[in-house]
């Protein structure tokens, strides 16, 4: 179906609670700052524009095209949104897209939403901005700068965001770094080409019809330098950290080992309850059996209640 565009939306259950919460915190800070920036710098006209563009990115993700071997190219939209709206508004637009995808279509989890917004809206936009802005500067606002910059921004935003996903999974201990990073990186180096081509096509169309929307040669928005540096830093950090992590996965295993403070917390409790209550049956097995019985009773009770209520409604109504 059309509901799962990029293999980059992490569902719930995959990230450790620590990683999820840290990324939620980072996301809240950046999105909070972007909200402040946008209400300060941009006119009131921007609110409907951002909302409708978020919807357009979602609709644009329906326009997939086959690449090879059953995979298809899709639009994440971070580069296009950044080029059209500038970095701060683009962060809000992508945040909205990721949020609605998770809430309505379960594309990405709710606890994992912080991480997903971080990867797609923050990393994606910052990297896009750095690349596009740099190429624009180099080209002196000429046509090739728009297209080369757009393609490169789109490709790199996907690639770097995918490295971020791989690192987060590795840090959560659900995927070994030396497999996750090359695998995610490799797949998204290909998917990124699809993103680049769609972005290129869209820019070509807009260049021909409404060149003013591309803001060619305009000065950087307020705090644009900050985003530029952040994008550069993120790209460098992930590009350097990822190969390192795949060569020395132990570093991340350590983070993963530190996860679940509950696992750490439960060890003293083990000493309180003797290991064997019944000879031959471990506590865990016993607990599992009891939980199974209790669970079955609960579900059975609820099912009976629902059936009873329904019959009642039918006889009265």
């Amino acid at each position: 179906m059309l509901l799962s565009p990029v293999a980059m939306h992490i569902p719930d259950g995959f990230l450790s609670t620590l990683v999820s919460l840290v990324l939620w915190a980072a996301t809240a800070i950046v999105v909070g700052y972007a909200l402040k920036r946008v209400s300060k710098d941009l006119g009131e006209r921007q609110v409907p524009l951002m909302g409708v563009l978020a919807a357009a990115i979602f609709a644009g993700q329906m326009l997939n095209f086959s690449v090879a071997g059953g995979t298809s190219g899709h639009l994440m939209g971070a580069a296009l949104a950044t080029i059209l709206l500038g970095p701060w508004a683009a962060i809000l637009v992508l945040t909205t897209v990721v949020g609605v995808q998770a809430l309505i279509f379960q594309d990405g989890g709710l606890l994992a939403m912080g991480a997903n917004i971080f990867n797609m809206a923050i990393v994606g936009v910052a990297v896009s901005y750095t690349v596009y802005r740099s190429v624009q500067k180099l080209s002196g606002g000429r046509k090739w700068g728009v297209f080369t910059g757009g393609f490169a921004a789109a490709w790199l935003s996907i690639f770097i965001a995918a490295l971020g996903v791989a690192l987060q999974l590795a840090a959560s201990g659900v995927s070994p770094a030396n497999i996750a990073i090359p695998a995610m990186g490799g797949i998204h180096a290909l998917i990124g080409i699809g993103e680049g081509l769609i972005t290129l096509g869209a820019l070509a169309f807009l260049y021909a019809t409404r060149r003013d929307l591309l803001h060619i040669g305009e000065p950087a928005p307020a705090r644009g330098g900050l985003v530029w540096a952040a994008g550069l830093l993120i790209a460098l950090l992930l590009a350097v950290a990822s190969p390192l992590a795949s060569v020395f996965p132990d570093g991340l295993e350590w983070v993963a080992g530190e996860q679940g403070f509950l696992e750490a917390a439960k060890s003293p409790l083990y000493q309180v309850i003797p290991d064997y209550v019944f000879p031959g049956i471990s506590n865990t097995t016993l607990a599992t059996i009891i939980a199974g019985i209790v669970g079955a009773l609960i579900v059975f009770g609820v099912a009976l209640t629902v059936a009873y209520l329904r019959r009642n409604r039918q006889t009265t109504g």
């Binding site: 357009a56 081509l197 290129l200 096509g201």
Partner: peptide
Amino acid sequence: RGRVAGGMAGNLFLRAFERSD
């Protein structure tokens, strides 16, 4: 094929801009 899909995306974005106005 990518360029065609991209042109369609561009078209969609343009309409979104006009609609937001």
